[in-house]
Design a protein around this nucleic acid. Structure first.
Lengths: 208, 208
DNA sequence: GTCTATAGTTAGATAGAC
DNA sequence: GTCTATCTAACTATAGAC
């Protein structure tokens, strides 16, 4: 490993991160098809041709961005395990999902837009890794039901409810702030969301 | 009113409806920016230039499509009123929303995509008619709380939860069918959704 | 009301100098 | 690793014949 190679590697990493951030905004604003490499380059302050130097084409850039988003989710917001009582685990999971909606709404929006438009890129993921990951979550809930710790709810629909009701504050934020008569949601607002969702979902599942 | 004018009017109406249906599919597939009038014309089997005869430009077509979607919602799926007990009203509202997700998922997806991408066209609506409409829904829930018919829940967050958890089956259908290991959801699946959501939300709100 | 032809833009992608 | 120049393709929108 020569000195030059290490240096190249770090430039490459830095520039890819800059491009990712610019691409995130562009894809959120215009969707995959509507996003333009020209505007991504302008947002990143990088010459248009350089985007093509780092990424094969627009699809490649988009795929890598989606992969990085999913990787962060699986590392940072994946708290639904059987290690504790359902009350604590579900509360922590709801909180983690709401905080993600607060801290990185654009990631949630890009994922949502991809699914809404039929998941042309993520279809393979949904039918492989996602199914395995989901089954581990469903198993946790089924165990609780068998142990009588929560009501006999459909595990899939409970998970969908938690995902949709938390992601809503990222994906539909523009409608939420209009409804709440605000310019933007603040820390207090997000705490109120956590409290409301936790209250209704835990009671709704008969969590002991 | 001459015979010709009546006939023209009906041709116009028929062709606009054909274009709307084609545009719906195109906008759902590629988003607003990515949608092309060429492909809308092909889907509608109408010459490209004729789209411009009926609609000023792409934005005009998109705006009119969104308006027609909102109009249908307000006429057909707006069952949340204070006429009955919360148990019946909330059950009927959840069912109506799920059935809309089942019967016209593309309408839900176009609306969702518009909001996710910042509501460039619907911003005005969200800050006018929508707020008035929403306030009437919030008032219904507040009345129930004052009468002790349901728990002291935040009316806005309860509404968001109902919207998000029901629309989820339209907007994120591709993820749902992957999760359920199905090719598509059938009537039974949607009934299971209604049952699960009604069970959790009604119990979660302490509906008497 | 419909169609063909075309003007005018904007886009993705690459070649080649530095 | 970066930039300019350029090719090729696609799209919106309009003019004008039918």
């Amino acid at each position: 490993m020569t000195k030059e190679k290490v240096f190249e590697g770090s430039i490459r990493q830095k520039n890819k991160a800059i491009i990712f951030n610019a691409a995130k905004k562009e894809f959120v604003t215009y969707g995959f098809k509507g996003a333009s490499i020209k505007r991504i380059a302008e947002r990143a302050n990088i010459a248009r041709a350089n985007i093509h130097y780092y990424f094969k084409d627009k699809t490649d850039l988009y795929q890598q961005l989606l992969s990085s988003i999913i990787k962060v989710w699986n590392n940072d917001y994946d708290t639904l395990t059987a290690d504790n009582e359902p009350k604590e685990v579900l509360s922590a999971y709801i909180r983690a999902k709401v905080m993600h909606a607060k801290n990185d709404p654009d990631a949630s929006r890009i994922f949502a837009s991809e699914l809404i438009h039929g998941a042309p890129v993520l279809n393979e993921y949904l039918n492989s890794d996602f199914k395995v990951w989901l089954q581990s979550k469903v198993a946790v809930i089924e165990t609780w039901i068998q142990q009588g710790l929560i009501d006999d709810v459909n595990p899939h629909h409970l998970l969908f409810m938690i995902w949709s009701s938390t992601q809503h504050y990222a994906d539909f934020n523009v409608q939420v702030v209009a409804a709440l008569n605000k310019d933007a949601m603040n820390d207090e607002d997000f705490e109120a969301v956590v409290a409301s969702l936790t209250q209704i979902i835990l009671k709704g599942c008969g969590v002991k």
